[in-house]
């Protein structure tokens, strides 16, 4: 069977099956590696860490980008689509990130991390805790020390990349 016509069946954690074109499925480095190691007759790939709702979103991303590359979609259109794609609640966003990390889809992982970073930018510690439902677990002394450090941090900028 040629790779062009090949269909891969992805099975989510909750046993839902998704039939996906080979080129779309192999945007995941993990799936590409799995398919390389098995015979051509193998078409089913279990994705035990990702539920159907999240897997559907991930496949939606891969399908769009596979097609966008094929038809040479403009950067502007892709950017607009990415922005809309990331308009999800926090829980879905984090699950997409976890799935992208597990499936090793570098572009989706980058997009998700940039989205989270964009949500964090210019917010205070308290605002970030509220936004992401995080409980502070420092002692009062540690909090005070951190505040003093961050006073300096607000007047500090990083000039270039980190050294090793």
């Amino acid at each position: 069977m040629t790779e062009k016509g090949r269909i891969v069946k992805m099975v989510s954690q909750d046993q839902e099956e998704f039939e996906v074109e080979y080129g779309v499925a192999t945007m995941s480095t993990l799936i590409a590696n799995v398919l390389q190691d098995v015979s051509e007759e193998t078409t089913t790939v279990p994705i035990p860490n990702v539920n159907a709702q999240v897997l559907a979103k991930v496949i939606e991303y891969c399908r769009y980008h596979y097609e966008a590359k094929r038809i040479d979609q403009s950067e502007e259109d892709i950017e607009r689509w990415n922005k809309d794609f990331m308009k999800v609640d926090n829980k879905t966003l984090f699950n997409i990130l976890i799935a992208a990390s597990f499936l090793d889809i570098a572009d989706l992982l980058d997009l998700g991390c940039k989205t989270v970073a964009g949500m964090i930018k210019d917010k205070s510690v308290e605002q970030i805790r509220e936004l992401f439902c995080i409980e502070g677990d420092f002692t009062e002394e540690q909090e005070a020390k951190m505040r003093e450090e961050n006073n300096w941090g607000s007047e500090m900028s990083q000039e270039n990349n980190a050294a090793q």
């Binding site: 991390c113 940039k114 989270v116 970073a117 964090i120 930018k121 210019d122 917010k123 205070s124 510690v125 970030i128 805790r129 995080i134 409980e135 502070g136 677990d137 420092f138 909090e143 951190m146 505040r147 450090e149 961050n150 941090g153 607000s154 500090m156 900028s157 990083q158």
Partner: peptide, 17 residues
């Protein structure tokens, strides 16, 4: 995520938990 933040936000995130 931290790598994609500017220095100030990175330092803020450090103080979250």
């Amino acid at each position: 995520v931290l790598e994609r933040l500017d220095a100030h936000s990175r330092l803020t995130m450090r103080a979250v938990n």
